[in-house]
Design a binder for these strands. Structure first.
Lengths: 209, 209
DNA sequence: GTCTATAGAAGGATAGAC
DNA sequence: GTCTATCCTTCTATAGAC
């Protein structure tokens, strides 16, 4: 109703500065630990300007995290394009997937969604639908195509997709990264995790010679 | 130094009331959303009494979560006792493990540790060492014994343990429960997840006939 | 739209009586 | 140890000038 009155230019440099500053702060410290004062200071604007662009702290937070969830998953990036070799395709998929999951930005969004989904229930839903849920749909469909091509035998594609992602996240390198434990994951650990997941997956689902 | 001065009776009913009230509130709402006022009110004590037993909000929080982490994992509960049948043992282990992971109390501790481990780094370490890390050690050792008995072929027991737990948590039922998404997991989903994890695990690591 | 200044509420922690 | 009452800080949000 008052949308035409406030009508903040979506390209406004101040607005962009606010979003960037708020995003960095929220990701690093969570919802409760960040004050509007701190956001205004980091963004180089006054608090009044901040409230001219966003109705409340909640609204600003929802904007940040919603955008983060939507931008985070580019499913096409993960889908193996050339499908001549299933093992190579799965390995490439696993590498991109695990490295994406371990990126500091992804970890931050993951942490914050888990933390705040109790207070903002729509947050958990948006994250799942745009993240894990969407990936599972696309990956399961890919598994079905491989099965039709005679390269895999996957009785339950949804379950198999969950298992593959589950083995990547495992209880090892990803769990420690989520908890912020030092030292961070090494290249060797990442490669071993991916190779192990592919090996186990293929032993279970490859078509026997 | 002032330990003998304050010397709060560890069995004090007021102290117990505080711990119980604070635990419920922290688990349900997280660190930032809970005030000392609310804890005092819920515990039926005054704020001064609260501060007589705990030096600060941080200290009270650390006590709650530390205790929760330590009590949460009774590794012996998860270890298959009779080992005549590996598949049955793994299925029993998986059932107990997944149901434990899905318990509301476990989910609450898991959420809160992830949320606050950025601000309280020692929290993530304590949780991992007493939870996933300890379980992995014990489970990997069990896998080695099964291998020595000729029932399994597990080249990397740590990786295999991570994979089994990873498939249980998967990207499905546990992920949705962590995000608080309705509806909750059904019996059928839980059973399918466990059976699927055991089947995939055995296809990868069972000794071929 | 943007600022300075401030209102109004809530939280963490303490003083002092008992 | 426990209470009541309160201090000080910090927070969200707004009023009013430009």
């Amino acid at each position: 109703m008052s949308q035409t009155l406030t009508h903040p230019d979506i390209e406004s440099p101040k607005r962009q500065a606010i979003l960037q500053a708020a995003g960095a702060l929220f990701m690093a410290q969570g919802y409760g630990a960040v004050s509007m004062d701190a956001i205004a200071r980091a963004g180089g604007v006054s608090k009044a300007t901040l409230y001219a662009h966003f109705q409340s702290k909640d609204a600003l937070f929802a904007n940040i995290v919603g955008t983060g969830c939507r931008q985070s998953i580019q499913t096409s990036d993960f889908l193996p394009d050339a499908v001549t070799d299933v093992e190579a395709a799965l390995t490439g998929l696993g590498q991109r997937m695990l490295r994406f999951l371990l990126a500091e930005r992804t970890l931050a969004i993951h942490r914050i969604v888990i933390a705040e989904s109790v207070r903002f229930p729509e947050l958990g839903r948006a994250f799942y639908d745009n993240g894990p849920g969407m990936f599972r749909r696309v990956f399961a469909a890919w598994l079905v195509r491989q099965q039709q091509a005679g390269r895999l035998a996957v009785p339950d594609p949804d379950l198999a997709a969950d298992q593959f992602v589950g083995m990547l996240r495992g209880a090892g390198v990803f769990t420690r990264a989520t908890l912020g434990l030092a030292p961070g994951p090494t290249e060797a650990e990442i490669n071993a995790t991916v190779e192990g997941a592919v090996r186990t997956f293929l032993r279970a689902f490859a078509v026997r010679a």
